[in-house]
Amino acid sequence: MSLKLNTDLLIILIAFPILWFAPAGLKSYGLYVVSLWLVMSIAAMGLNLTLGYAGLTSLAQGAFLGIGAYATAILTVKAGWPLPAAFLVSTGLSFLVGVVLGFPALRVKHHYLAFVTLAFSVVVFLIARNEQWLTGGVFGLANIPRPTLFGTDLGGGLAFYRVVLVVTLALTLVMWWLLHSPWGRAFQAIRENGTRAASLGVDIRAYTLLAFAIGSAFGGAAGALYAPLVEFIDPSPFALSASFVLLLTVVAGGAGSFFGPFVGAFFSYMLPELLRATGGWYLIIYAAVVLVLVMVSPTGLLGLIDRWRDHQSQRKAAAIRAAARPTLANGAETNPKEQGAAS
């Protein structure tokens, strides 16, 4: 177990410098798409905690993305706040709303929870669309500023991408730490069997709320980056379908697997861009690819790799067994006593 933890951490530390330097040659479109991938990975990471580790089926992550994005846009555009402050407040706000929404999660499970979160998503979308005095309504909010640091403009494609990357790194480390704290193990215990976890002294109420709220806070943080990334928001990216896509992202990547959200977000947000070259049929190809993927590997893409790895190690084991199998020549020399001891 502890070896696996270190592997995750190692991958994070190796990936960071590669991701820091690799996209430097990309033009603005490429940088935008890679930034979008990271932002959506953060949102998916949050949902992965609620769904993959705590086992709560939420259809509200798109709404939390929206809450974060709108809070950031309103604070920076209308109140003139600097982006970092708006980012923190947006994330905190999403956490609080997550706590409030988490209460129903204590009463209901499975598809009823999905339904309650679905209703929440619809309400958030309608508020964003109807309350024009606050959110700009259907016309949205434009000219959302990108950050500056000590007078240096971080608004250029590459600079902003690196800002997003640093935030992603920080949040990924937070998530890693969280999952390896006693909390993380409690989340998993709730998912495996809530009733049993309760009988073993896990405070299900508190942990369910916490899982929901932290997952929501990640959604809000992603939204707080999404707003300055696009520099314009209106309600459409936060409609119910956004929550469905995020759910798909987490499952396609591998629910409950640490890097699943990154792989899933690649599928959901980068693949359609890469497929643009195929013209009018690109969404059909995309849907077909997802369908085949989920059918081939219902545990997600990382599940596929795990299965391949299992397969490899089984083959290796088989090979070792085959090599170790006593042949006629040395079989006679095998000590029957040892065989007895081994079995």
């Binding site: 089926t57 469905f244 759910l247 798909l248 499952v251 077909a288 997802v290 369908l291 989920v294």
Partner: peptide
């Protein structure tokens, strides 16, 4: 869940 996701893609 995987089946639900598959119907979403469908």
């Amino acid at each position: 869940l995987p089946l639900a996701i598959a119907t979403m893609a469908l």
